[in-house]
Design a protein around this nucleic acid. Structure first.
Lengths: 137, 137
DNA sequence: TTCCTTGCAAATCGTTTGCATAATG
DNA sequence: CATTATGCAAACGATTTGCAAGGAA
């Protein structure tokens, strides 16, 4: 399978590279549409799938029923805010868990993912503000 | 909201308790149907969602596009075979990752999930058999 | 009787796909 | 030219929901 260039794919890649959050296909679509107004959702999905398949981006499952995409393919973990749904990168080293996991396991472990869930900084502040009716700086 | 008894919900719970794999709603439906032939898929979904919401079972997202359910609500990690799709429990201690994760993170971490991906024992054996055209005992 | 639960079918949501046309190399 | 990519719309699979009827407290 030989790839050919397309401005649609380039725009999708470029948009994704400029984001540190983890946009869904719908978000990618809405944004790339500003540059290429007649791009179709199908094209966005096709390219995201293709880019993920060839390893240029990664597809993230966080359990909210929607796929998220990430231009950062270096190994890292994610945090998902249960309040606002935001998906963010965790600033922590990749753990050497596969050796420990393999101790009681017959089979081949290829990789692992970790998702942390809770309340993000913004949502923590928001709930404090709401509770005490104050504005934090 | 007060719960009332129903044989449908009881059957769903009982079926789930008897399984160590992590059935999907469709699998639960197919099996509970053997006992209650006219149960509807909607009822299965409604009850699985309810049971998960009240914490009697847990809903697992492994990234295959389908929700899995688990009667074992004790903290543990999962392995997903990329060949056959099976979801199995990992026999390893829960890691104390949240302290390390919280070091560079402002916000509240409530819990975390880990999924290991690879090839399960069965699928490993199957590919060896295929490669060497032998039958392992 | 109250109101929770069900079965059924239709609706919804995210994603994929078929097809004719356009763009790339 | 051969082949890949696109837009569009229809199809799809998993899950949810509205509603009238049934069942538990």
């Amino acid at each position: 399978m030989n790839l050919k260039h397309s401005k649609q794919r380039d725009s999708i890649k470029e948009f994704l590279k400029g984001r540190k959050d983890h946009p869904t296909a719908a978000v990618v679509y809405e944004n790339v549409r500003k540059t290429i107004p007649n791009i179709s959702l199908g094209t966005v999905y096709r390219n995201l799938t293709l880019l993920a398949d060839i390893g240029e981006i990664s597809r993230i499952h966080v359990g909210d029923g929607v796929d998220h995409f990430d231009a950062d393919i270096s190994p890292h973990y994610h945090f998902i805010c249960r309040e606002c749904g935001n998906v963010m990168d965790m600033d922590m080293d990749k753990m050497d868990l596969e050796k420990a996991a393999g101790r009681n396991f017959c089979g081949e472990i290829e990789y692992h993912t970790i998702c942390f869930y809770g309340k993000c900084e913004k949502c923590c502040e928001a709930s404090i503000q709401k509770k005490h009716n104050v504005t934090l700086c």
